[in-house]
C-alpha cells in the first residue's frame, strides 16, 4: 500500500457522522477498528482505506473513562460489528446500536482485560523467575547471596506484585 495516511481526531458525538463522510469521500474499505487505553481516557480508532489501496484515513475519538459510550458504525460497515464487540469485551466500551454480545470471552469473566488498571491475575499469583540470583557456595555450602537490590519484572506495575 502506498498510503499517505490522513489522521483526524473527532469529538465523540460526531463520530458516526464523520466516519460516514469519510466513507463517502471514497474510503470505502473498512480495515480495522480498535481502542487504546491512554489512562485518562480511551481512544477509539478506525482505519479506512480507498478501495484501490492508494490512500488511507485514520479517525480517532476520545472517550472519558466515566462515559464509555459511542455510536456503532455497523450500519456503515457491517464488518465493523465484530471489531466493536471485541473492543467492548476488551476495553469495556459500549457501542450504541450494536448488540454487544460476547464474542471471545465467557460471559461470567469479569473486567475488561486490556484496561491498564485491571490486574492480570497470572502476574500476581506466579512467582517471577527473574527474582532468583546465583548463590555463593563454598565446598557445596551456601555462604552468601550477592543480590543487594531487589529486581523487578519489566513492565509489571509495582502495585501488582506481592511483597
Amino acid at each position: 500500500m502506498t498510503a499517505v495516511m490522513a489522521m483526524e481526531s473527532v469529538p465523540v458525538d460526531t463520530w458516526h457522522e464523520r466516519v460516514h463522510q469519510v466513507k463517502q469521500r471514497g474510503f470505502g474499505f473498512f480495515d480495522f477498528l480498535t481502542a487504546v487505553d491512554r489512562n485518562s481516557f480511551v481512544e477509539v480508532v478506525v482505519h479506512l482505506v480507498r478501495e484501490d489501496l492508494s490512500d488511507s484515513y485514520l479517525i480517532s475519538t476520545m472517550l472519558s473513562n466515566e462515559n464509555l459510550h459511542i455510536d456503532s458504525i455497523e450500519t456503515l460497515f457491517p464488518g465493523a460489528g465484530w471489531h466493536e464487540r471485541e473492543v467492548g469485551e476488551m476495553f469495556g466500551v459500549k457501542f450504541e446500536g450494536n448488540d454487544m454480545q460476547k464474542l471471545l470471552r465467557h460471559e461470567t469473566l469479569g473486567l475488561p482485560p486490556l484496561r491498564k488498571n485491571i490486574v492480570l491475575s497470572a502476574r500476581v499469583v506466579t512467582e517471577w523467575p527473574g527474582a532468583a540470583e546465583p548463590e555463593i557456595k563454598q565446598d557445596g555450602r551456601k555462604v552468601g547471596n550477592p543480590s543487594r537490590r531487589r529486581q523487578r519484572p519489566p513492565g509489571a506495575p509495582e502495585s501488582w506484585l506481592q511483597q
Binding site: 506466579t126 523467575p129 527473574g130 532468583a132 555463593i136 557456595k137 551456601k142 529486581q151 519489566p154
Partner: peptide
Amino acid sequence: VRECPAWCIHLDSHTE
C-alpha cells in the same frame, strides 16, 4: 529470564 515477557525461562545457578 528477566526480559522474557512470558516468564517461561527458569534458570538455577551457583557461584564457585
